[in-house]
């Protein structure tokens, strides 16, 4: 297909898929409360836009669409880096990835808009004993590195 003709029907198909991906990303961004899933949804929207761009670029026979997609790719990488760093910081503060607890910019005196947490779909745990990994330090830290880091701190 890369060397065959790209008709307007093909373009329509690409645009339609792009639109659907974009819309689904919007839904994910609007409804999910996990910060990381929200970011994934935003990336999904970017993918939809990328499909649109590549389709248009192919249809018009120039490189602009692909170049724009490359730019989007780069920006997405930057966004991922910075946003993940921020997420890690937020998680360190609140020990939760819930976006609805970060509402510091709201006007004073407004009611909470999130439903209460008791109506949760039950969590079906796997049967049997569970052992979830807890990243406790195993063993002593090597003393060499302690000395080295101490010197560095000085």
């Amino acid at each position: 297909m890369p060397n065959s003709i790209f008709t307007s029907a093909d373009l329509t198909a690409y645009l339609a898929i792009g639109a659907v991906l974009f819309g689904l990303g919007t839904i994910g961004f609007l409804s999910r409360r996990n910060l990381i899933v929200m970011f994934l949804s935003a990336e999904l929207m970017l993918q939809g836009v990328g499909l649109t761009l590549v389709g248009f670029g192919r249809y018009h026979g120039n490189w602009n669409g692909q170049i724009l997609m490359i730019i989007i790719l780069t920006v997405a990488a930057c966004e991922a880096a910075v946003s993940l760093a921020l997420v890690v910081q937020l998680f360190n503060r609140s020990k939760s990835l819930d976006v609805t607890i970060w509402r510091d910019i709201r006007e004073a005196g407004l009611p909470a808009l999130v439903e209460l947490d008791q109506d949760v779909e039950p969590f079906l745990a796997a049967p049997g004993s569970e052992s979830y990994p807890h990243l406790s330090p195993s063993g002593r830290e090597p003393e060499v590195s302690v000395v080295a880091s101490g010197q560095r701190a000085n």
Partner: peptide, 8 residues
Amino acid sequence: SNNKYSFL
């Protein structure tokens, strides 16, 4: 694997 060592 849900195992500390595997996870690491």
